[in-house]
């Protein structure tokens, strides 16, 4: 992606705190990233690193209380979504930003037909009549590869398999041709063949509709296959951000390197045992004042205990937040 090109989405200095009974949880700390039109941004990071929370906050889907967005800006084509009216936010949701959630089994309403749930955003955002919405719904179901679409509109979610439900969810998210599609581990709950089908489907759709995609996943293989750029999150922060080749070929952050090592290799010599990242993820009870990865890091230095590294550009669209990598030389 060209530097300085148009950005469809720009997130600046986002901070999210959960106020729970047991105290505060600083789930997202100073997260910034941007997305160019038609770009696929892969987001990786271990469980609890704040991927879902970050993305849900963009269109105000976090329950509040307990969640509070303390700072930051979310600019969708220059408009700060954190400041817009609830009515405007509802236009954005589903209309300009589509969201596919982590769990397809529970994300659809069990008592309404798939046709009804698919027609809802169409009628709301595009002002379609019942008939027009129905015709478009059939189109959408066909688009996501559900056979016999017209008949299946009358079916309820429980009559669909998990993979089919996720396709329905994707169809709903795509219904109004959003500028940005956020897919939160859309394939994690599905078996490998269905995963591959859905991946291919989204690739096609991106090519056809030209929308930008944020793809959250644990699966680095998937990232390698579809992402243009990769954002690595750790402890509620972005620790590394780079074009996909850079991340795989020249990882800078020790967490990213560790993450890449955990991918079992099929071709190379088999490792003695499956690599894991030793240690525990950080507890986020306060805003970080030191590097949150230091306890698990082999290259820990005195500076890491004193100062939380900020994200710095090291050239070629590659940003990293690590004291050890500030020289920009590959480790």
């Amino acid at each position: 992606m060209p530097e300085g090109g148009r950005r469809v989405l720009e997130v600046l200095g986002l901070e999210i705190v959960f106020h729970t009974r047991d105290g505060e949880i600083h789930a997202v700390n100073d997260v910034s990233f941007s997305l160019a039109p038609g770009e696929v941004l892969g987001v990786v990071g271990e469980s609890g690193s704040g991927k879902s929370v970050t993305m849900m906050s963009l269109i105000g889907l976090l329950p509040s209380p307990p969640a509070r967005v303390c700072r930051g800006q979310v600019l969708l084509d220059g408009e700060n979504l954190l400041m817009v009216s609830p009515a405007r936010m509802r236009q954005v949701r589903g209309g300009e930003v589509g969201f596919v959630f982590q769990d397809p089994m529970t994300s659809l309403n069990p008592v309404f037909t798939v046709g009804y749930q698919l027609a809802e955003p169409l009628r709301r955002h595009m002002g379609m009549t019942k008939r027009a919405a129905r015709a478009r719904s059939i189109e959408l179901l066909e688009l996501v590869g559900i056979p016999d679409a017209a008949a299946r509109l009358r079916d309820y979610p429980h009559q669909f398999s998990g993979g089919m439900r996720q396709r329905v969810m994707i169809a709903i998210a795509l219904a109004c041709e959003p500028k940005v599609l956020i897919a939160d581990e859309p394939t994690t709950a599905l078996d490998v063949t269905i995963q591959a089908q859905i991946l291919e489907l989204l690739q096609d759709l991106r090519a056809q509709l030209g929308m930008a995609i944020i793809w959250i996943t644990h699966d680095l293989g998937v990232i390698a296959g579809i992402a243009d750029r990769v954002m690595v999150m750790y402890g509620g922060q972005v620790v590394e951000q780079a074009p996909v080749r850079e991340v795989f070929g020249n990882p800078q952050h020790p967490y990213t390197r560790a993450l890449l090592k955990t991918v079992p290799s099929v071709t190379g010599a088999r490792a003695a045992r499956l690599e894991v990242i030793e240690g525990q993820p950080p507890i986020l009870t306060s805003a970080p004042s030191a590097c949150s990865f230091r306890d698990r890091c082999a290259d820990r230095a005195a500076q890491c205990d004193r100062e939380n590294p900020v994200l710095r550009a090291i050239g070629g669209g590659h940003d990293v937040a690590c004291h050890q990598s500030y020289g920009g030389c590959p480790a």
């Binding site: 889907l61 954005v92 949701r93 969201f99 008592v111 709903i172």
Partner: peptide
């Protein structure tokens, strides 16, 4: 339930979310 979040993510108003999606269940 998760489907409530889905309804909100589609841009449904609070009224529809509560009085249609949640109430019906």
């Amino acid at each position: 339930q998760d489907y409530v979040r889905t309804a909100r993510a589609k841009g449904m108003g609070e009224r529809t979310v509560v009085m249609v999606h949640v109430l019906r269940n």
